[in-house]
């Protein structure tokens, strides 16, 4: 079990109903963590349409999560 700090943006923030939370999880990777959150909160975006960032840098969905990591899931972007 590790503790991670999540920040939500855009559609994920609205579907979660908050902008940030701290969570204890058994997820070992961003992919596992997203699956856990999606099941709990009903996120509409499937995992393959969401990128992961840890500590303000893009990471692979299978990268290891560590105690205290700041995790952001990035929905499809739409700047401009």
């Amino acid at each position: 079990m590790i503790t991670v700090h999540l920040e939500y943006f855009a559609i994920l923030r609205e579907q979660r109903g908050l902008a940030r939370e701290t969570l204890a999880t058994t997820a070992a990777t961003p992919a596992e963590l997203y699956a856990e959150l999606r099941a709990r909160h009903g996120f509409t975006l499937p995992r393959d349409r969401v990128r992961a960032a840890v500590n303000d840098e893009f990471v692979a969905a299978t990268a290891p999560l560590r105690e205290g990591d700041r995790v952001v899931f990035i929905p499809p972007v739409a700047g401009g």
Partner: peptide, 9 residues
């Protein structure tokens, strides 16, 4: 920027 930067509309 439109395709890569984490900005949402």
């Amino acid at each position: 920027a439109k395709s890569r930067v984490p900005i949402w509309k």
